[in-house]
Structure formats: structure tokens, C-alpha cells
Amino acid sequence: MTDCKLMIAGLGGQGVVFLSRLISQAALLAGDDFITYESHGMAMRGGSVTSQVKIGNYNSPLIGHDSADILLVLAAGEYERNRHFVRPGGTCLVNSKQALADLPPECLLKATTIAVDNNLPKAVNLVFSGWAAQHQAFPYSFELMQEAVKTMAVSPAIETANLKALEIGRQQT
């Protein structure tokens, strides 16, 4: 049974909620219990949003300071605001064009640039997760994420586009 507290941060409209749903779908496929929380309402209009995913034996979806195992950041500006949720020794993966002082380069990806260059500007979240799934701290394998994308796709066209974005992300390591 996996035990992982994962947090996703970004801006409204970036697909933070979709990403947390994708990871929960992977958890379901893996047969793990989980509970997640998403921001809704006013914040979705371009404001800061976070999603919290707790995989394992939990009742509340809320993650406290110093306790997330992994933090995924889709907008570099949101890193500062959320890094204190990560436990000592935890992992931060950030979508950023610029270097960030306290993070090694292998924890950064220019996901937006890559997505735009590949003509998938709306799939930054998937490119990012295809890459993130390669990291050791990520709770599920790349293959399971692929499965999750397939089970969640509402049309074959979306499935193809999303799998492509995921694959482009994988190639970034």
C-alpha cells in the first residue's frame, strides 16, 4: 500500500485539478485508498490554487506544514508560497524557465516552453506530469499514469493528445 502526501500548486486554469484527478485515478488503478482536495470558486479565476492528494489511510485531505512528500508546482511563482508544506527530505518539482536558488536543475522543467513548442499549449500539466513520473518520489509509474490518462479520456482525440503530451514530458529526462 502506497503512502504519499502530494501537493500540486499553480494558477487557476492551468489544470491543477485535472492533474490531481489523474493522480487519484492512478491510485484507484493501483488499488490504493486516497483522499484529495481541490480549490474551487473564486480562486479558479486565475488566482493561486492548490490540490492536495493523500494516498494511504487518511480521513482528511488537508496537508500540514513540513509534511508533504512531494510538491508539484505548475507556475514557478507559486513555489515560494507552498514550499513550507514539504517535509525535510521531501521533493519539489517545478515548472520554471529560470533556475531557482535552492533547487537542483533536475527538479526543474521548462514545461510551458516545451508544451508551446510542441503545439500543446493547454497540456502543460500533462507534459509536466510525464516528466515528474520519472522521479523517484513520484508515487506511481509512468505506465500507470498512461493508464490513468486512458481511463479518464472523454474522447479518442483527447486521449491521443494527452498521451502525446505525457510522452513528450517523459522524454525530458
Partner: peptide, 11 residues
């Protein structure tokens, strides 16, 4: 103390 987040705005 986390810095304040980006405020929401119209689309």
C-alpha cells in the same frame, strides 16, 4: 509565513 497568493481576476 507564506507570501500572499495571486489574487483572482476576471478571465
Amino acid at each position: 509565513a507564506a507570501p500572499p497568493g495571486k489574487r483572482p481576476s476576471l478571465c
